[in-house]
Nucleic acid binder design. Structure first.
Lengths: 363, 363
DNA sequence: CGGTCTGCGGAAAGCGCTTTCCGCAGCCTA
DNA sequence: TAGGCTGCGGAAAGCGCTTTCCGCAGACCG
């Protein structure tokens, strides 16, 4: 109505009296000046403070905000406010479906609580993981969630725990998913039990010689799942010689080449367990390329039950983990309760989803 | 050596003289106090300022940082420093492989430039997209990258452009991927040409009746790709009646149900083009479930060439877009050059990758 | 031996916001 | 009509950091 800028075009002249040129963002002071109120009042209107403000002033402020397209500077707000708003998550790689699912759960709960989620990809690099902890701490996040396998690396574990503890000291909350060796609340999937169950499934189908395509040795997820398979083997009076466990990198291509090695070195194998679905998919691809029928000649099983498991041919037998729920629970813990309480641990179950890729061994 | 805390345990007593209790983060002032230097000097040491500082003081500061596990408050730094460090990205959904690939490219270049990437998922909700623009603006990011299809929605486009323009006014850089209707530099994939090429491929195999499983009507990506298919049809003297274009939601399940509808309504169809790979995979699944051989009875083609395309059976013929490179180029533009320059547009090519899912129509 | 540099540490002024505290009106009550 | 409330706006003090500017020494020169 009375503004010098009748249309919505960005006002060039007025911003930040210092300088004169409009470069640089519009500040609260600009808004206050234009609305002819104090910054205090402008702030109150904008943030919906409980303190009452007269209708007229309120309207003037809102008008000014609109005209100037004002957006508060989050850094300044973060500094001035006491409470933390964002939450940080460190995963190996969000674009990996495993983490995508977990992240979905984290995201949902975070959003429900009005929190902003900052996602960091460590790409399985411990050094980067350490850096990200520092970064998130610097960002003053309210909580840090660490998802994905831990490492068999004492020095690293000690260091990251020290950092996490320092973070907790300063009032932050830590929760972890699938890492039992850390500070903080934990959501632990039944990796070992899952390994046991899938091997059990294969032994019961009649297989005698199971081969395993494992992930990197340094990851606890690898060793946990492997331990379960070993246990099942023992229960059935079978051995799992080292020769029949090949380590790879949890990638599709790694699964393919490992299949080649495994079958070359141990031709007696009639069933392959890959410790994640990506590698299982790679195994399937290699077997198809080499005209080895699945499950006719060789059975294949994966781990995680990613969406792709039901799209490959044959559809993939695998171990299902409730990934989204795990994320949701980790975030719930991260956002609930005081910082000081005994460490909570929630365990989640694994179940076998039998599909087409597993069957009895060839007669 | 002379610190009161000989071991690495977190020092509880000293932080932030105000209060006495150690709750709350360690500040630069704490570090300075412990090192017996001024905050200015501490800051210089920590940030590796160009200004020389005597070796002894430097060592004392570093020691204090170590002892106190000090991490600078990023908000305070953001406020005090002039230059912006983070870069924002708005995508539909990072866990969608299409965006995962793009994000990988964005990430790489951002990291090369020492920038932190803030990723926001809009889940194809225009309102959320608007919110995120504000949020990123509030975070004072150096650049905003908008990836993923635009919307056929004039009001929305106008509003988001207004916001983006305001952001540019204040010195921010905007670049977009696959959206031609926006403010800012753009990386534009050859969506229309890709559509033309894939249809061309099918017509040349001898197909006469092509059906299309399209994405949501409101997305420009959908209409662009469709336009290319229409053009190819016209070039071959063929029509593409509305009946043979069914709209879905770019999801796997949407692809499956759309296949059912399409073949029910238009049994003459011998080739199906899905406008992304997820829907193509869904189509494949439906066809397999209904014992319709691919490509024997029906050919199927996708779009994007996501990794899964070579894992399904039969492997999927599709249109490849250099997604990672698109991300990298968008980020390069976002981080290069001054804010004031003519809008740059970079176009990237699409090529057909013929695999097993397409072949001649049944005789 | 006085004067001018130069080298380096510290004081202090912000960055943009929130929030406490103060004070001015206008109102009610006695 | 005086005194005390209450309601609401503004002044100002930080939040934790960076960075400019100043000043003190010691080095060097004439």
């Amino acid at each position: 109505m009375d503004g010098p800028e009748p249309d919505a075009g960005p006002p060039a002249g007025e911003a930040s009296a210092r300088g004169g040129i409009a470069r640089g963002a519009v500040t609260l002071a600009d808004v206050a000046r234009r609305a002819k109120v104090s910054p205090a009042t402008a702030s109150r209107v904008i943030n919906g403070s409980t303190k009452p403000v007269a209708e007229e002033l309120r309207a003037r402020v809102l008008r000014a905000v609109e005209d100037l397209r004002y957006v508060p500077n989050a850094h300044a707000q973060g500094l001035a406010r006491s409470h933390r708003i964002a939450v940080g998550v460190i995963v190996h790689d969000v674009s990996d479906p495993y983490f995508a699912e977990i992240t979905r759960g984290l995201q949902r709960v975070a959003t429900e609580h009005g929190r902003l989620l900052v996602i960091c990809n460590s790409y399985r690099d411990p050094a980067r993981e350490l850096e990200y902890v520092e970064l998130l701490r610097a960002q003053q996040v309210a909580a840090i969630v660490l998802a994905g396998s831990g490492y068999h690396d004492v020095a690293f574990t000690k260091e990251i725990n020290a950092k996490l503890r320092a973070y907790q000291q300063s009032g932050g909350h830590v929760s972890v998913i699938g890492r039992h060796e850390h500070v903080g609340d934990a959501v632990l999937p039944a990796n070992e039990e899952g390994g046991r169950l899938i091997a059990e499934h294969l032994y019961e189908l009649g297989h005698k010689h199971i081969g395993v395509i494992a992930g990197p040795k340094v990851l606890t997820t690898t060793t946990d799942r492997l331990a379960g398979i070993r246990r099942a083997a023992k229960d059935h009076g079978r051995a799992l010689p080292a020769r029949r466990v090949v380590h790879s990198d949890f990638s599709r291509d790694g699964g393919a080449t490992s299949t080649a090695h495994l079958l070359h070195d141990s031709p007696e194998v009639t069933a392959i367990v890959a410790l994640n679905d990506s590698m299982a998919v790679g195994a399937l691809a290699w077997l198809r390329a080499h005209k080895i029928s699945v499950p006719g000649q060789v059975s294949v099983a994966g781990f995680d039950d990613m969406p792709v498991a039901s799209d490959v041919t044959p559809t993939l037998t695998t171990v299902r983990l409730p990934l989204t729920e795990m994320g949701a629970r980790a975030m719930s813990m991260a956002l609930s309760g005081s910082a000081i309480h005994p460490t909570r641990i929630e365990r989640v179950e694994a179940i076998v989803v039998a599909r087409e890729s597993s069957g009895p061994p060839p007669a």
